[in-house]
């Protein structure tokens, strides 16, 4: 790439943060994955082909960094009889008036990952399947189910808001 790296951060920083938050929960793990994603991307930037779809490439890098973060989290965890904590306790993200980040964190894993990489990250079904396993059709269904469930949360929150006015 001969484009200033800043342009990629400016254009895709938000998308990558959404993907990281959906995969890891809206806490410090997601922010670490975001930072690692852009540092890895910065290293690779000069050797990247000019015709690369930068957004899709960044989302794939984010996937690898998120996997690393999850592995590091598992290594840190000390085995006990206590049930494991759910992925990063959701911070009340600023402006999340509909509770959507919490709702994503509560989705079944495959739906959550399909929403992260396909719906938020913009990867096609087949490329999402290459990251999270299964076939393109299974990803399509998981993403659709996940989004449908999120829309219910959104509408319920909207009704609550409307009623409280």
């Amino acid at each position: 790439m001969r484009t200033p790296f800043e342009v990629a951060v400016e254009r895709y920083g938000t998308t990558v943060l959404r993907v990281c938050r959906a995969v890891l929960g809206p806490g410090p793990d997601a922010e670490d994955a975001w930072s690692e994603t852009f540092l890895a991307a910065l290293r690779a930037w000069p050797d990247l082909d000019e015709d690369t779809n930068v957004e899709a490439w960044l989302v794939r890098v984010a996937h690898r960094r998120a996997v690393d973060v999850v592995r590091a989290r598992e290594r840190r965890a000390i085995p006990t009889d206590e049930p494991p904590e759910p992925p990063s306790a959701p911070d009340p993200a600023d402006g999340d008036e509909y509770g959507l980040w919490e709702a994503v964190a509560a989705l079944p894993e495959r739906q959550r990952l399909a929403v992260a990489y396909h719906y938020l990250g913009g990867l096609p079904h087949a490329e999402t399947a290459a990251l999270i396993g299964g076939g393109a059709d299974a990803v399509r269904r998981a993403a659709a189910d996940g989004v449908k469930s999120l829309r219910r949360t959104y509408r319920a929150a909207e009704r609550t808001k409307g009623a409280s006015r």
Binding site: T3, R18, N53, V54, A143
Partner: peptide, 27 residues
């Protein structure tokens, strides 16, 4: 490589995802 993302996307529209999944400018 930086301009072919402006085409239509088959998944949620930009406005849709922005509304649904807020990211604070400060963050």
């Amino acid at each position: 490589g930086m301009t072919n993302d402006d085409g239509p996307r088959t998944t949620g529209t930009g406005a849709d995802t922005r509304t649904l999944f807020p990211v604070a400018d400060g963050d």
